[in-house]
Amino acid sequence: MAIIYHVTTVAAWNAAKEKGSYEDPSLAKEGFIHASEAQQVDGVLKRYFAGKTDLVKLTIDTDKLKSQLVYEWSPSVQEQFPHIYGPINLDAVISEDPL
């Protein structure tokens, strides 16, 4: 079981649970949902979520993920990140941790 993470707001995650799947705004804008490996989460929080509250970290089992997962190079930080090309099915999220 490979694990990746996605950070979102509590409100967005609650809306996804009502809808039945999760779609980050980046899916419409960029074509994929940004995710991270464990060692990348702190950097993502510092770069993109500094000062924000009401966040949740989703733990995603990639074996259960129905949308395509692709690791792609991010030139801004010189690392590969997991990108999810489609909605995240709720049963792929094995835990949700408040941040």
Rank of each mutant, 00 (worst) to 15 (best):
A12W: 02
V41S: 00
W13C: 02
D24T: 05
S26D: 00
G43D: 06
E23M: 11
L27A: 06
E18D: 14
Y22N: 06
A11I: 13
A28D: 08
Q40H: 04
A50N: 08
K29Q: 13
E18C: 08
K46Y: 04
K17S: 00
L27E: 06
L45C: 07
A11D: 09
I33G: 05
L55F: 03
I33S: 08
L45S: 07
S36E: 11
K19L: 07
A11R: 11
A35C: 14
G20C: 06
A38P: 02
D42F: 09
V44G: 09
E37V: 00
E23P: 05
D24Y: 04
P25W: 10
G20Y: 07
F49K: 06
H34Y: 15
W13E: 04
L45N: 09
E30P: 07
E30V: 10
E37L: 14
S36R: 06
K46E: 10
A38E: 14
R47T: 00
K17A: 01
A38I: 13
W13G: 01
K17W: 01
Y22F: 15
N14R: 13
V44W: 10
A35Y: 02
E30N: 15
G20N: 11
E18R: 14
Y48T: 04
K46T: 12
F49S: 02
Y48A: 03
Q39D: 13
D54E: 13
D24H: 13
K29S: 11
E23N: 13
L45P: 06
G43H: 00
V41C: 01
D42E: 12
K52F: 04
A15H: 08
A50T: 12
K29E: 10
F32H: 14
K46V: 12
L55A: 02
N14S: 02
E30I: 14
K17D: 05
Q39E: 15
D24E: 12
D42M: 04
K52V: 09
D54I: 10
V41A: 00
E30W: 08
G20H: 11
A38R: 15
E18Q: 13
Y22H: 14
E37R: 14
K52G: 03
R47K: 12
G31R: 12
I33E: 06
E18F: 03
V41G: 00
A38C: 03
Q39W: 06
L45E: 03
Y22C: 06
R47P: 00
I33A: 03
G31Q: 07
A38G: 02
F49L: 05
A12Y: 04
A35Q: 02
K29F: 03
A50I: 05
G20S: 04
G31E: 04
D42L: 05
